[in-house]
């Protein structure tokens, strides 16, 4: 009788623990979705600014082409290639910022670019943190045995662009 009670309680505890764990992971997945949506929104805004810059009258055709194709690639990239494509755009923008006098002619536009770049740093940091937390959690044994992640795809890391930003 006693052992039956013990087994019963153990099962209840296991069920509770599994719900608790699944719930935790569910929340983490939601966190990643939110942080990715925010990061994506800010990246889109940057691409839009890059295109606006590319169409400025002072921009030579070569720079225009580089910027437009970088912005286009960044927008079209699959999620796992995204950070690489965005680094390309970062590098193109930084080159223009440091090596030409266009920023002095369009102060407002470049001020906006700077603001977006600042926000981008924060967004990347927040997203990166939530991805790492989720991946760490999903690698735990209990999540793998009971397949608590369900069909949710494993989040993709977005390496921080320390170099280019």
């Amino acid at each position: 009788m006693n052992s039956l009670l013990f087994i019963g309680i153990s099962i209840l505890i296991l069920i509770w623990y599994l719900t608790f764990s699944a719930n935790r992971l569910d929340r983490l997945h939601h966190r990643v979705e939110t942080s990715w949506a925010n990061l994506d929104a800010i990246l889109q805004r940057r691409a839009a600014i890059a295109q606006e810059i590319a169409h400025l009258p002072e921009i030579d055709p070569a720079s225009n082409l580089i910027l437009m194709s970088a912005a286009h690639q960044a927008r079209e990239a699959e999620i796992f290639e995204r950070s690489e494509a965005e680094s390309g755009l970062s590098a193109a923008l930084r080159l223009l910022r440091d090596e030409s006098d266009v920023p002095h002619l369009h102060i407002d536009l470049f001020k906006e670019l700077d603001e977006v770049t600042d926000r981008l740093r924060t967004a990347i940091a927040i997203h990166q943190e939530s991805v790492v937390a989720t991946i760490n959690r999903r690698s735990k044994l209990i999540y793998r045995i009971f397949r608590l992640a369900g069909h949710a795809p494993l989040p993709v890391t977005y390496p921080f662009e320390d170099e280019e930003l």
Binding site: L18, T19, F20, D26, T34, S35, A37, N38, L39, A123
Partner: peptide, 23 residues
Amino acid sequence: YLHSRGEGEKVTIGSDSRNWLRL
């Protein structure tokens, strides 16, 4: 703040009973 929040999201009170329903 802005980057931590989904579109139109609000802070709510989590309920444990809801978790059981979810299971």
